[in-house]
């Protein structure tokens, strides 16, 4: 093995270890939330294997939680696909940002693999990492995070019943705590975002209270609120172009 090759392997190993290290916190957080997901999936009627398969193939908290209700009432595949599209469309933004982080010679396999692990948390740590994104780093952070996500799901679905009922009930709020932790920091800094969040919450609540709107299923309710609120916000208060655009209109 040439010395150059050895150095390359060593830095790949270091990147992989760094990815694992960064992923530990994510893994712990995912264990708690996916445990709650596993319990809920079990209550919906999924087996532990089905729940774990869903977690392994999707790796998306909001998407998976929202899908359970649709699966439970045997909704159409089109509604499920549309809901996933809207609920997970934020990954489109994240992947767009990440596409700027690859070295020009990044392999197709690296791009396909990195795309698999685009979640709020993995994306945030990956995009904040200085320099280009390496396959070894992504393998480390995605590997340990997905392990936590799938293991927690299987435990929750398979052994959630042995937990005290009060704890199982309380765990139901974990996912919403995570959602609030994603949206609130930006709401505090950015007034239009705060207004978007408040309007979305109020309209979502109203749509469940007003009789003729309450018949709309939760999936389509979220889609309608999103298109309405984000569309109006984008029209009224467009975000300024990024400084790197050079101001060319």
């Amino acid at each position: 093995m040439s010395q150059q090759q050895q150095e390359k392997n060593r830095s790949a190993a270091a990147d992989f270890r760094q990815g694992l290290q960064d992923g530990i916190a994510i893994c712990i957080g995912y264990l708690a939330v996916s445990f709650a997901f596993g319990i809920q999936a079990h209550e919906t009627g999924l087996t532990a294997v089905q729940a774990a398969a869903m977690s392994f193939l999707n790796v998306t908290s909001a998407g998976q939680f929202s899908a359970l209700e649709l699966i439970f009432r045997q909704a159409s595949l089109m509604e499920l696909a549309l809901l996933q599209l809207v609920v997970n469309l934020r990954y489109l933004l994240m992947s767009t940002a990440l596409s700027q982080k690859f070295a020009p010679q990044a392999s197709l396999l690296q791009r396909l693999g990195t795309a698999y692990g685009v979640t709020d948390e993995i994306f945030t740590l990956s995009v904040l990492r200085p320099g280009t994104l390496t396959a070894a780093y992504s393998a480390g952070i995605i590997g340990i995070s997905v392990f936590g996500w799938v293991a927690g799901t299987a435990l929750g679905a398979g052994a959630g019943q042995i937990l005290p009922e009060r704890l199982v009930s309380a765990l139901g709020i974990a996912i919403y705590g995570m959602f609030l932790a994603i949206i609130l920091p930006e709401s505090r800094k950015n007034r239009p975002v705060l207004i978007v969040v408040l309007c979305a919450m109020v309209i979502s609540a109203l749509m469940q209270v007003i009789p003729f709107l309450a018949v709309i299923s939760s999936g389509f309710r979220i889609i309608i609120v999103t298109l309405l609120v984000a569309g109006v916000a984008a029209a009224i208060s467009p975000v300024p172009p990024e400084p790197t655009d050079g101001g060319a209109a």
Partner: peptide, 30 residues
């Protein structure tokens, strides 16, 4: 480059997660 599309994509996750959270969170823990 489309300002509307960029802005829509920017606001969208906040609208979606907020709508998913509320009012569902009020009955999430039993």
């Amino acid at each position: 480059t489309s300002p509307f599309l960029r802005s829509f994509l920017y606001y969208m996750p906040y609208a979606t997660l907020a709508a998913m959270t509320f009012p569902a969170i009020l009955s999430a823990a039993g």
